[in-house]
């Protein structure tokens, strides 16, 4: 019951953010220096063509009216027409969304899989050689551009060792996991560098807690104390850090999709830019924001599940 209330309040808090997101996406078009219609159509466009495009973009009305129209369209799930593909933006976005979701989810899973064991080892061997090496590794990883890491992976695992494909999405779950492994690992690496630092220090802090003494005095094994008592508490603050970095995770996919030629939203966004397909850019930006907000709610839920005290 409490958890439901928690979720409800959380959703309510999102209303102003949602309004803000639509305003930002709506106003984006105004950033274009000069007349967007002329830029889209070029200098030789006929006045009729200009007027028609202005009408279809809704630019012939006052600003507030345009925004109301924009909101009305959004409410109906209408993101406008792609200028490049001459199709509804919504259809094109929905077609590309699964690839991006795969990449995001896979990266998150890999990031956790990398983070947890390394953070445990570093925390247990605090200030010893292993800890220093892991610490240095996170420092290096955080300073590496992900697209470059991806290229190095390609050169080594795909071209030299030939064990992973260079690009593409793959068909079916197994094949997809295989195809997306390198791109996801690339996105996961920089995220886990952040998470390892955070989880390591919270494990170190939790290890000093009184209840760890109780657990040890019970005669539990060290393994159980770490996995069941320490880790579970330490993860609470790390989930918060993960929440803060969701934008980082999702944003990371944009670059990596372009590198590994994965037909996701990021790749679509880039191709739309060169085609001056502004409605498409707007639509994709909006979807990315929705994605961040959705994953944020997911982390909040995770948080509420891990920590029984959450009743905010």
């Amino acid at each position: 019951m409490d958890k439901l209330g928690f979720l409800g309040r959380r959703l309510l808090q999102l209303v102003p953010v949602a309004v803000g997101i639509t305003i930002v996406v709506f106003l984006m078009l105004r950033l274009i220096p000069g007349d967007p219609v002329r830029i889209i159509l070029g200098s030789r466009a006929t006045p009729e063509a200009i007027a028609s495009l202005q009408r279809s973009l809704g630019l012939d009305k006052p600003l507030w009216e345009q925004y109301i129209l924009f909101l009305g369209n959004l409410a109906r799930g209408d993101l406008g027409m792609s200028l490049l593909y001459r199709q509804p933006v919504r259809a094109l976005v929905l077609e590309r969304l699964p690839a991006t979701l795969w990449l995001v989810a896979y990266s998150a899973v890999l990031a956790v899989a990398i983070t947890v064991p390394l953070a445990i080892v570093a925390a247990r061997r605090k200030d010893r050689a292993v800890d220093q090496v892991i610490r240095g590794g996170t420092l290096l990883t955080l300073a590496m551009p992900s697209f470059w890491v991806g290229i190095i992976f390609m050169m080594f695992f795909s071209l030299r060792l030939d064990i992973f494909p260079v690009s593409g999405l793959g068909e079916g779950v197994r094949d997809r996991l295989y195809h997306l492994f390198l791109p996801s690992l690339t996105v996961a690496l920089s995220l886990s560098a952040i998470l390892i630092r955070s989880l390591r220090s919270s494990i170190v802090a939790v290890t000093l807690a009184d209840f760890v003494d109780t657990a040890r005095a019970k005669g539990l094994t060290e393994r159980r104390i770490m996995l069941k008592h320490i880790l579970r508490n330490a993860l609470i603050s790390t989930v918060t850090i993960l929440g803060v970095n969701i934008g980082f995770l999702i944003g990371g996919t944009v670059v990596i999709e372009n590198l590994f030629a994965i037909p996701g939203l990021g790749a679509l966004m880039l191709s739309s830019i060169s085609g001056r397909d502004y409605p498409m850019v707007q639509g994709i930006t909006l979807v990315f924001a929705v994605l961040v907000v959705a994953v944020n709610i997911l982390t909040d839920l995770t948080y509420a599940i891990i920590d029984p005290r959450v009743r905010l």
């Binding site: 209840f211 005095a217 891990i306």
Partner: peptide
């Protein structure tokens, strides 16, 4: 520990795992 010799601690507020 816990089998032959058990121990209880000073501060019961922090000696139980909160989660």
């Amino acid at each position: 520990r816990g089998g032959e010799i058990s121990m209880i601690f000073q501060d019961p507020m922090s000696a139980l795992n909160p989660v």
